[in-house]
Design a binder for these strands. Structure first.
Length: 231
DNA sequence: GACCAGGCACATC
DNA sequence: GATGTGCATGGT
């Protein structure tokens, strides 16, 4: 780990002026991760609606806890917009309790569900009628949906070529000297947009691979032994 | 018992 | 606009 001399962690401007080393590095990381892990088959979820619900539930939360919450919703046969809309925030909160922050997440889910019902009659498939930029803005206007959640829905539920930036993505890319740690969400996203062609399958796979290497090696306290990105 | 996990909104300065 | 804080469960 550590910054190669040619990749000072200044990133965006450097990447614009001299994109080739960044392209090589960003594509190189993908190649190493894909060779190591193979296809990740993301997002874990049976439907676009389940993916959107999971994207909200997983905010700052371990996925295994989210699975418990989704299992509760399935067990009660309420994992669809109409059913969840009929529930009170308190009822919903109890079902999603294992996912943590259950009171705020119940409100956030309801805000998303209201949007989905009002704009698309509760049908995720109808979101595909809306262009990506407009839909992203609309999602961001929902209370509880920030950039990562909106982009996760766009990429994994709707198949739009949008790169998702999360804590793992930031950690991996900054530790490899490709971006300043404190850079904004948009700056991280721009790095990927400048270095790889927009492709839904590739963006899906790349982000999933970053989460895998993040979970296995790129923790707040790095555990670099055995990491496929170790130099 | 401490740390960590696939954020976000809001208050305050 | 930057920074701090509340929100909470469950695995390691």
């Amino acid at each position: 780990m550590g910054s190669p001399d040619s990749f000072p962690a200044v990133a965006n401007r450097k990447c614009l002026q001299q994109p080739e080393p960044y392209k090589k590095a960003v594509n190189g990381i993908y190649g190493k991760l894909f060779s190591f892990y193979g296809p990740r088959g993301w997002w874990p979820g049976d439907s676009p609606f389940e993916i959107a619900v999971g994207a909200i539930l997983t905010q700052n939360t371990n996925w295994s806890n989210v699975e418990k919450a989704i299992a509760n919703l399935k067990r009660q046969d309420v994992l669809y917009a109409e059913a969840m809309c009929k529930m009170s925030s308190q009822e919903l909160a109890q079902l999603i309790r294992p996912a943590g922050y259950y009171n705020v997440k119940a409100k956030r889910l309801r805000a998303f569900l209201c949007f989905l019902m009002d704009e698309y009659g509760g049908d995720m498939a109808r979101m595909k009628e809306t262009a990506t930029e407009r839909l992203r803005d609309a999602l961001l206007s929902i209370n509880g949906v920030g950039q990562e959640t909106a982009d996760s829905i766009l990429l994994y539920a709707l198949g739009r070529p949008v790169f998702v930036i999360d804590a793992y993505t930031k950690r991996v890319m900054s530790r490899h000297g490709l971006m300043a740690e404190e850079a904004s969400y948009g700056e991280y996203q721009a790095l990927f947009y400048r270095c790889i062609d927009p492709d839904t399958t590739l963006f899906n796979e790349y982000h999933a691979l970053l989460v895998s290497v993040g979970k296995d090696f790129c923790k707040p306290t790095p555990k670099c032994a055995g990491c496929p990105l170790k130099r």
